[in-house]
């Protein structure tokens, strides 16, 4: 008998802080992947970057934070513009509708949302547009960020 499909049957980005070097390559790889520009230097060099993943921590411990794609996401319930929604398990934002009120920043318990360079909110959508492994995972030198089912 086929096992019933679980809601959580999907890959997500997970971090293991013990292996995180704090190198911030994930931030650069994310910003590059989102830029739509072909060459990394052209996309990022000398520019303020607005990645959808960011590294927090201090000298002792570092870890990367990006959207958890919660089972029951409070950002979706709270968005005053009806711009955040969940599709096939991925929490997405319609940037055309967002008015930049930052209510999602006020409610996300993980601190995973921040505005992009244009003041409109952006968030990790697991690189679903480009397909394959998310760029932060692909580029992590110590496999501190993985993309798997848990």
């Amino acid at each position: 008998m086929a096992s019933p499909m679980r809601v959580n049957d999907m890959k997500r980005v997970y971090v293991n802080e013990k292996w995180c070097l704090g190198c911030r390559l994930c931030e650069y790889n994310c910003a590059f992947a989102s830029s739509g520009i072909r060459y990394m230097a052209k996309a990022l060099k000398g520019k303020a970057i607005f990645p959808k993943i960011h590294v927090e921590g201090d000298d002792g411990i570092t870890f990367a934070v990006s959207c958890r794609h919660c089972t029951d996401p409070i950002c979706v319930k709270s968005c005053i513009a009806g711009a955040i929604y969940k599709e096939d398990g991925v929490v997405k934002i319609n940037r055309e509708k967002c008015v930049g009120c930052l209510t999602c920043v006020l409610v996300c318990p993980y601190g995973a949302l921040a505005p992009g360079s244009d003041g409109v909110m952006q968030k990790c959508e697991l690189c679903t547009q480009s397909g394959g492994e998310p760029a932060c995972v692909k580029g992590c030198p110590n496999r501190a960020i993985v993309y798997e089912e848990r």
């Binding site: 959580n8 997970y14 934070v65 848990r150």
Partner: peptide, 9 residues
């Protein structure tokens, strides 16, 4: 933190 960033939430 392990629960928040290493588990399904």
């Amino acid at each position: 933190r392990g629960k928040k960033f290493g588990g399904v939430v």
